[in-house]
């Protein structure tokens, strides 16, 4: 039985309140995200002179992607290729060890046969580097790896018998190595916790069945954990890649004084520098942003498709299963005759 008040309330349409509630989000998104995004697209087809008034069409893109006949134009192209390469190298160098490490740890932490004490403690400690300000991490590593002012690492290495201090800041692969290490250090805890959650989402009966069948831990990992974890691993990889494309704080700050390290300049640093340090180059900065936008969109849509996929797949599988069952039942029904 419904009271009259309930009926009255049912008859009122509350749809307009839905709009009121989501309106602030969309207004702010429009002003601070969408307009800037369109503005970036607009700026990317304007010139690189003192003013941004002259329309140059796709010239910025052509220069950046294909190069040009004059030396400065060719330099822009070479720079873009260089920073893209740097970004990829730095990303690979931190993602591979990060994934391997966090996968291993996640499997260990979720393995009930292993007697690991203080799991929560380890998780908390390993996540700690992730919350520390990236700018401060850069500052810290800069001081730890310093060559000139008796950096702790170099002084320790020399105590161990090294003759010359290693130039961890200006050296090409040394500086890359430190940034890769710092990134791995900051992110493996985060990835580990996410993978752990995914592993715990796998039905325990699968692990139990494997245990009863006598599967060893390697078989369990390769035959059960890894295949079922694949969507999560791919998801992690793509989000990490999008994050890697934005890598800015560490590469921007990890340098000596004001000089630039060409080996660690990433695409985000390139955009920032063309905007702030060389203020006449808005156009290149914007055009690079647009290129970055398309790369991210492609990666993001992969991720989007993957997130939506499992449900659809499940439904398909269910329908298939139901059909198979029906067929079997038909068979057995007629089989008796």
């Amino acid at each position: 039985m419904k009271s009259s008040a309930q009926n009255r309330i049912r008859s009122i349409s509350y749809a307009k309140y839905g709009y009121y509630f989501i309106l602030p989000f969309f207004i702010v998104y429009f002003i601070f995200q969408l307009v800037p995004l369109l503005n970036t697209f607009r700026l990317s087809v304007y010139g690189n002179g003192k003013t941004t008034e002259d329309f140059v069409g796709l010239q910025n893109f052509i220069t950046l992607i294909a190069g040009g006949d004059s030396l400065p134009l060719q330099a822009q192209h070479d720079n873009l290729i260089r920073v893209l390469g740097n970004t990829l190298i730095l990303w690979f160098g931190n993602f591979i060890p990060q994934l391997a490490l966090s996968l291993l740890l996640a499997v260990w932490f979720t393995d009930l046969n292993l007697k690991i004490k203080g799991k929560t403690f380890f998780k908390i400690v390993m996540y700690l580097p992730n919350i520390v300000t990236a700018a401060s991490v850069a500052a810290l590593f800069l001081m730890l790896f310093s060559k000139t002012e008796y950096g702790p690492i170099n002084s320790w290495l020399m105590d161990m018998g090294l003759k010359e201090p290693i130039d961890f800041i200006k050296g090409k692969w040394q500086s890359r190595g430190v940034i890769m290490f710092a990134q791995t250090w900051m992110w493996f805890g985060n990835t580990m916790i996410m993978l752990m959650a995914a592993i715990m989402g796998i039905s325990p009966s699968l692990f139990e069945a494997a245990d009863i069948d006598g599967a060893n831990s390697r078989q369990v990992f390769t035959k059960i954990t890894l295949p079922l974890l694949r969507p999560m691993v791919i998801y992690t990889m793509i989000t990490s890649m999008i994050g890697g494309l934005q890598m800015w704080d560490l590469p921007y700050l990890y340098k000596q004084g004001q000089s630039w390290n060409r080996a660690t300049e990433t695409i985000a640093v390139f955009i920032y520098n063309h905007f702030h340090v060389i203020p006449q180059n808005y156009g290149y900065s914007a055009a690079t942003s647009v290129i970055l936008f398309f790369i991210t969109s492609i990666l993001g849509s992969f991720c989007f498709a993957m997130n939506a996929d499992p449900e659809a797949k499940k439904k398909k599988a269910l329908i298939k299963e139901a059909k198979r069952q029906a067929k079997l039942q038909n068979k057995s029904a007629f089989g008796g005759f």
Partner: peptide, 12 residues
């Protein structure tokens, strides 16, 4: 997933 860097030029 749209990164900040993508919009930052137009934003500023």
């Amino acid at each position: 997933m749209v990164p900040v860097q993508v919009t930052s030029v137009g934003f500023v």
